[in-house]
């Protein structure tokens, strides 16, 4: 199933279930242990220098996947291989080196910076702990990093509360870049920002990616943003990838019924693309109770008996992507009618 010759990341069957604490009543009544099934068998490859967009509804496991990649969460089963090494085996300095190479930018710019450290201290600490620069060269490097994210140099002496949300997000980017990573995981990078500021931050990220040759995992729920940013896009539904493919192909001609519904739910500025048909019916099932078979069958207009029992696997599509649907061909056909 290898699409790329030398993927930077290769994720196999990644599963993460959070067990719920069982109360005394559950134990007495012999209720089975319940768990939140956040990720249910993710298979994914990310190649060097590419931007992979991850989209899906709230609660589908996007952020959980991002946090697994930087080892903030440990998966229940499955492996993440980074440059052909299983990241779960990294300990001590190896783990530190891994985290130096794979950095994360957080969603909330107000809680992701220590309120009691100046921007200079935040950057200096990163440079010092990872011994990126000798002590005498650190102030120059801090100035360089601030230039890189377009912040004035006197920002180093200020505390985070003196900055706006967009500026704080750029400080977060500078902190991640301080350790010269090769991969950035951006979890909802701009969802907490004003639209006018979103573009600035996203374009900065794109420029930096090109300049530094970064691999970017862009987790977002804003579809237009993901289309603008990504080379590849993966659509996640209830902790499984339902469709993955080159960004343009996927957005122009989505194959999986869920991708179709998700994309048609996005508002469009083009009047000809407007429609009154409800994009999708029903509610997202609880991850406590993931349906058997295809996770989407409860809401899918094409569902048949087979969908309720057998979970579809990702299958290559003629357009270059992959989709996990028993009716992939039918669904494309119906779309063309």
């Amino acid at each position: 199933m290898t699409l790329h010759p030398n993927p930077l990341f290769s994720i196999q069957d990644l599963t993460l279930h959070f067990p719920l604490t069982r109360g005394l009543a559950d134990l007495v009544l012999r209720q089975p242990a319940r768990e939140v099934r956040a990720l249910n068998g993710i298979n994914l490859e990310i190649s060097q220098g590419e931007t992979l967009g991850i989209v899906g509804e709230s609660g589908c496991g996007k952020s959980t996947l991002a946090r697994c990649l930087v080892r903030l969460l440990d998966p229940t089963s499955g492996t993440i291989r980074f440059q052909d090494q299983n990241i779960a085996n990294f300990k001590g300095t190896e783990r530190q080196t891994y985290n130096r190479q794979v950095q994360m930018i957080f969603q909330d710019p107000y809680s992701s910076l220590n309120p009691r450290m100046t921007v200079g201290q935040i950057l200096d600490e990163a440079l010092r702990v990872h011994e990126m620069r000798p002590e005498t060269e650190r102030p120059a490097r801090i100035a360089e990093l601030l230039d890189l994210v377009r912040l004035p140099r006197n920002a180093a002496e200020k505390l985070p509360h003196e900055f706006s949300g967009g500026q704080r997000q750029r400080i977060g980017i500078a902190r991640a870049l301080a350790v010269e990573p090769i991969c950035l995981v951006a979890d909802e990078l701009v969802s907490a920002l004003d639209v006018s500021v979103q573009a600035q931050v996203v374009n900065l990220l794109l420029e930096l990616q090109e300049e530094l040759g970064l691999t970017v995992l862009f987790v977002a729920h804003d579809l237009r943003l993901v289309r603008h940013v990504s080379h590849q896009v993966a659509v996640i539904y209830l902790g499984s990838i339902v469709e993955i493919g080159p960004s343009e192909t996927l957005f122009r001609a989505p194959t999986h019924p869920y991708s179709q519904a998700l994309l048609s739910a996005a508002p469009s500025l083009n009047p000809e693309e407007r429609h009154d048909k409800p994009a999708i019916s029903g509610e997202l099932p609880s991850p406590l109770n993931v349906p058997a078979g295809c996770p989407f069958h409860v809401r899918c207009p094409l569902a048949t008996a087979r969908c309720t029992s057998e979970k579809p696997l990702l299958k290559p599509l003629p357009g270059g992507g992959q989709a996990a649907c028993h009716h992939a061909e039918t669904s494309v056909g119906e779309r063309k009618q």
């Binding site: 950095q103 809680s111 992701s112 009691r116 600490e125 990163a126 702990v129 990872h130 902190r175």
Partner: peptide, 26 residues
């Protein structure tokens, strides 16, 4: 629960550094 603590972990800082340098002053 704040993300600056997660950021410290992602930075590969030791838990001693995170507890006493980052969390404690706050």
């Amino acid at each position: 629960a704040h993300d600056y603590v997660s950021a410290g972990r992602v930075m590969g800082y030791s838990s001693g550094r995170i507890i006493f340098r980052h969390i404690l002053p706050n």
